[in-house]
């Protein structure tokens, strides 16, 4: 089993090294998400009454759209020089490849969110220290990255991968995004744990399902 995780980590580390060298994915995604937040900040007055209602939506619009940008890149690097085939020739089950790529995408998204969230909270004049929001962000991000990694692998073998991924991705992640928006709204308006526990459970259930299913079907998605 340690060999299993060592290989997942090898894929994760390889992607992190590549990203550190190129800064192609995380930097572009970070700039995009901050731009979305800034544009919405201009559109809505920070002290208006509606801000508590729209702010969570703005946060998740920024994260979801930037997430698609990031997920679209997940297998692009692997397609260059046939590296995806190189990975598939390795003596590991296909789910190891899925977990490695998923872990890398998750790491990139969490880094982007760790930088973009304080920017969002400052611009919208919201409290800076909200640990519950961290939990909401992590739960939702795990869910949409799990789905997105699978769909990115599916789309990467098609010519229309740039358009195919969002078309497949958004309908599937609607439950987790709605739950994330509702839970964030409760957190940012100072609501109690009880109020958001249902949404947290929805996200946790979504995460469990979409962490198990892709690892089971990934080999059929990635093979010809």
């Amino acid at each position: 089993m340690s060999g299993y995780f060592a290989k997942v980590f090898a894929i994760l580390w390889k992607d992190i090294l590549s990203e550190l060298r190129t800064r192609e994915t995380a930097s572009a995604v970070l700039v995009f998400s901050i731009l979305v937040i800034v544009i919405f900040n201009f559109a809505f007055e920070p002290d208006s009454d509606t801000i508590e209602t729209v702010a969570p939506g703005i946060l998740w619009v920024a994260f979801t759209f930037s997430g698609v940008l990031s997920l679209n890149r997940t297998f692009v690097l692997e397609k260059e020089k046939g590296c995806l085939e190189g990975l598939m020739l390795c003596p590991v089950s296909r789910e190891v490849i899925y977990w490695g790529k998923m872990a890398a995408s998750l790491a990139f998204m969490l880094i982007v969110e760790a930088i973009a969230t304080p920017v969002f909270l400052i611009l919208f004049d919201l409290p800076l220290f909200v640990p519950e929001l961290v939990l909401v962000i992590v739960l939702a991000t795990v869910g949409f990255v799990a789905v997105g990694t699978l769909l990115s692998a599916l789309a990467t073998n098609t010519r229309a991968r740039d358009t195919l991924l969002p078309i497949l991705f958004f309908p599937l992640v609607v439950p987790v995004i709605i739950a994330a928006v509702k839970a964030s709204e409760t957190v940012l308006s100072g609501g109690a744990w009880d109020e958001m526990s249902t949404w947290l459970q929805v996200m946790a259930a979504f995460d469990v399902v979409f962490l198990v299913v892709p690892s089971l079907v990934f080999e059929f998605v990635i093979e010809e």
Partner: peptide, 20 residues
């Protein structure tokens, strides 16, 4: 196809595949 990652060094590529 070489199955090699352009942004990694030769050593890093071999190390990666060696681990796999």
């Amino acid at each position: 196809h070489t199955f090699l990652y352009d942004h990694l060094t030769a050593h890093e590529n071999l190390k990666f595949y060696g681990k796999m």
